[in-house]
């Protein structure tokens, strides 16, 4: 191959691939709006808050960012809004172990940010992040679950709380909760958390039936394993 031929191959080949890339980009732009909910003014205002505080400097969103703190794509789907709002405004007041600093996010800014995260959680991301294989399988293998255990799963408690190493770290660990609290405390706390724990970021579960509250409390009372630090 002569130098001139190699040069022409480089120039025209690059242009060729760039044109295909442009065509795919054009097609993609036409399809994006159908793959996500409508962007309201509040969602857009939340995106501006996201940029203002340089959230991407620690977090990832759609898996892109700084890998220092959890991915935010589906957060609004997993964590209660009440919790998110309190956490955003003063992380360590909600979770003393939190690494996130208090940035001065105002109440309105927190609302906007939560609206923005609600939007990202509904974007069609081709199934990302995938459901963890083992945690998904653990609930169905072998034994029958009690009513309380089923509720614990269906209410998504493990998004924030941890039991025996599985679950979130944003709320207190429940591995040993059965030896720390009694039945009355637990039931009352489900109905109105902040009456028992000042400043609690946990939403109230007063809408559960008496039987459901009982089942969940009974399950909590079985959790009596010593936590070794």
């Amino acid at each position: 191959m002569s130098n001139k031929a190699a040069r022409n191959l480089f120039i025209y080949g690059s242009l060729f691939f760039f044109v295909i890339f442009l065509a795919l980009t054009f097609d993609t732009m036409g399809k994006l709006d159908k793959r996500a909910p409508e962007i309201t003014e509040e969602v857009n205002a939340g995106k501006m808050v996201w940029h203002k505080y340089d959230c991407i400097g620690c977090h990832t969103i759609f898996g892109n960012g700084s890998y220092f703190a959890p991915d935010m794509t589906k957060t609004a789907e997993k964590k209660p809004k009440e919790y998110l709002k309190k956490f955003l405004m003063d992380p360590k007041a909600v979770n003393p172990q939190a690494s996130m600093p208090k940035l001065g996010i105002t109440s309105e800014e927190a609302d906007k940010l939560i609206a923005f995260l609600g939007w990202t959680s509904k974007v069609d991301t081709n199934g990302w992040p995938p459901k963890p294989i083992l945690a998904t399988a653990a609930g169905v293998a072998g034994r029958e679950l009690t009513g309380g255990q089923k509720l614990y799963q269906s209410l998504g408690c493990s998004n924030c709380h941890m039991v025996n190493g599985i679950g979130g770290t944003t709320a207190p660990e429940l591995t040993n909760v059965g030896s720390k609290r009694d039945k009355a405390w637990l039931t009352g706390h489900f109905k109105n958390p902040s009456a028992y724990v000042p400043n609690s970021a946990m939403p109230a579960f007063g809408n559960l039936s008496e039987k459901e509250l009982n089942d969940l409390t009974d399950y909590m009372l079985t959790l009596k394993q010593e936590v070794k630090k």
Partner: peptide
Amino acid sequence: YIEVGLVMFTGILGTGHHYYWIGTP
């Protein structure tokens, strides 16, 4: 020329590996 040509032939559409999970088709 061959090297930079191959960079462009693979790299331009290779951008697609960033478009797996961000809400793109």
